[in-house]
Simulated assay, not measured.
Amino acid sequence: MTGFLKQVADAVLPAICVVGIGYNGLLYLNAPEGVRMNNLLQDRIADSRAELAALEAERQRLSDHADRLLTASLDEDLLEERVRSVLGLVRPNEYMVRMEDLDRLAAAPADMPAPLLNEDAPVTLAALASLDTAR
C-alpha cells in the first residue's frame, strides 16, 4: 500500500502544482490588479492627459483673449476686428462682402443674371466716428 500512496503522491502533487500555477497565471492576467486592467488604466490615463492638454491650451487661448479685451491693455486690432465682424462696420474706402452673399452667388446657376446689390449699405467707421464726435 505504501507503493500505491507513493504513486498517487507522485502523480497528484505535480498536478496540484500545475493547477495552482495556472490559476495564479490567470489571476495575474485577469484580476482587477492584473496586466490587462493595468493596460486599460494606462490607456485611460493617456487619453485623460491628452484631453487635459487640449483643455489647458483652450484655457490659455481664452485667457489671452480676455487679457487683450481688458481696457488697460486693449488691443486695437482685436477691437477693430470685432467691430467689423459683429457690427458690419467698414472704412469709407473699403467694401464689405458678406459670406452669405458669396454663398448665394456660388449656388446660383451660371446663366442667371447677377443680382442687384443689397440696399442695406453697411455703416462705415467714419459715420460711427462722426456720431462719436457729435456727442
Rank of each mutant, 00 (worst) to 15 (best):
M1A: 14
M1T: 07
M1V: 13
G3L: 15
K6Y: 11
V8C: 11
D10R: 12
D10Y: 04
V12N: 07
V12L: 15
A15E: 04
I16R: 04
C17K: 12
C17Y: 02
V18E: 15
V19I: 15
V19F: 04
V19D: 08
V19S: 00
G20L: 12
I21Q: 06
G22T: 09
N24S: 13
L26H: 12
L27Q: 14
N30C: 09
P32C: 09
E33N: 14
E33I: 02
G34Y: 01
G34C: 00
G34A: 06
G34M: 08
G34H: 03
V35E: 10
V35R: 02
V35F: 06
M37D: 15
M37K: 14
N39Y: 10
N39V: 14
L40I: 14
L40N: 14
R44S: 12
I45C: 09
A46H: 05
A46K: 11
R49L: 14
R49V: 13
R49N: 13
R49A: 14
A50F: 02
A50W: 00
A50T: 08
E51T: 01
A53W: 11
A53V: 03
L55Y: 07
L55H: 04
L55V: 05
E58G: 10
E58R: 15
Q60Y: 11
Q60I: 00
R61K: 02
L62G: 09
L62K: 04
S63A: 14
H65R: 09
D67I: 03
R68D: 03
L69W: 06
L69K: 05
L70T: 11
T71Y: 07
A72G: 02
A72C: 08
A72Q: 05
S73D: 13
L74F: 02
L74Q: 02
L74P: 06
E76A: 14
E76P: 10
D77L: 02
L79S: 02
E80A: 13
E81C: 02
R82E: 09
R82A: 10
V83F: 01
V83E: 05
S85F: 10
V86H: 12
L87E: 09
G88I: 07
G88L: 04
R91T: 01
N93V: 09
E94A: 07
E94R: 05
E94N: 03
M96Y: 05
M96A: 08
M99T: 13
D101M: 00
D101F: 00
L102F: 06
D103V: 11
R104I: 07
L105I: 03
L105D: 06
A107H: 05
A108S: 12
A108D: 09
P109R: 04
P109A: 00
A110I: 14
D111C: 02
M112Y: 03
M112R: 15
P115H: 00
P115M: 02
P115A: 00
P115F: 01
L116I: 06
L117A: 15
N118C: 11
D120T: 00
D120W: 05
A121R: 05
A121L: 03
P122V: 01
V123F: 01
T124H: 05
L125Q: 12
A126P: 00
A126T: 13
A126L: 14
A127I: 10
L128M: 11
L128S: 07
A129G: 07
A129L: 15
S130I: 00
S130H: 10
S130R: 15
S130G: 02
D132C: 12
T133A: 10
T133D: 07
A134L: 01
